[in-house]
């Protein structure tokens, strides 16, 4: 079981007048087969948190550990833009992040491409695919390394509502099947309520303000009363924390 531990994490960028506090004294404990959403206004350090957890950025202070059964866990990352290598085919984009190119590995990549319904697009270049398809390649890439934890940074925010909706379903299906720990950044409260067991609310200045449990059965239909009520409750929380205005 994967476990993410964040202790006293702070991150600053720049010095002097350019100094920006992206995260301030964040403490966090996430583990097991959970889907955790991180919500908050733009610039409150959500991406920075994922970047530190995945090793792209280093903390200014504090400690971050991600373990899987007491050894270092392997993270997968889905970005806001698909971040595919435009000069490599879909299959080669998946193979790029693998440890080897064995037949077994290729079969695994194929399997996840089929899961996102792109099994027939393996030889295409990213430029030949629609935005939604590119994003699905990004999702398949993250799953294909069979990571212990999965980081997703507003992966659907640039897609049209219909595509986003069907991808949300696919993602949830894959999460249920693969039993990953997912950390999912979004600024869409509805999306967070639909997908997650737990919602972390961040405020400007990179402070973790609240930690909410959403105990409703999956799959959740946004049209259902219970889901709508939960969403309203979270939004009210936002108002209390004065996050809506910013």
């Amino acid at each position: 079981m994967a476990e993410i531990k964040v202790e006293g994490l702070s991150k600053e960028f720049g010095v002097g007048e350019d100094r920006v506090v992206a995260l301030e004294n964040v403490n966090l404990d996430v583990g097991g087969h959970v889907f955790v959403s991180i919500v908050g206004p733009s610039g409150c350090g959500k991406s920075t948190l994922l970047n530190i957890l995945s090793g792209i950025e280093t903390p200014s202070s504090g400690k971050v550990t991600i373990t899987q059964d007491n050894h270092d866990a392997e993270p997968g990352y889905v970005f806001q833009a698909a971040r595919l290598l435009p000069w490599r085919s879909v299959m080669d984009n998946l193979l790029f992040v693998q440890k080897d190119r064995s037949d077994e590995t290729k079969a695994r990549c194929q399997k996840y491409l089929e899961m996102v319904q792109l099994g027939d697009k393996v030889d295409k270049y990213p430029g030949e695919l629609s935005g939604g398809m590119q994003q699905r390649v990004g999702i398949a890439r993250a799953f294909s390394i069979e990571p212990d934890v999965l980081f997703m940074d507003e992966p659907f925010s640039h897609l049209d509502a219909i595509t986003a909706r069907s991808l949300r379903r696919e993602l949830h299906e894959m999460w249920s099947q693969t039993k990953k720990t997912v950390l999912f950044v979004t600024h869409d409260v509805g999306e967070a309520v639909e997908l997650s067991n737990r919602i972390l609310v961040f405020a400007k200045g990179g402070k973790l303000e609240d930690d909410l449990q959403i105990d409703l059965p999956f799959p959740r239909d946004p049209a259902e009363d219970a889901v709508a009520v939960a969403k309203a409750q979270v939004l009210r929380k936002f108002e209390e924390l004065d996050l809506i205005a910013s």
């Binding site: 792209i56 971040r83 790029f96 992040v97």
Partner: peptide, 24 residues
């Protein structure tokens, strides 16, 4: 930069990043 960050987050070794990201 964003592709290089992507590769780093997936722990792709530097020589592979050079060949498949930087040179292309």
């Amino acid at each position: 930069k964003e592709l290089i960050d992507m590769a780093r987050s997936f722990e792709v070794p530097q020589n592979k990043i050079t060949r498949h990201v930087l040179l292309p």
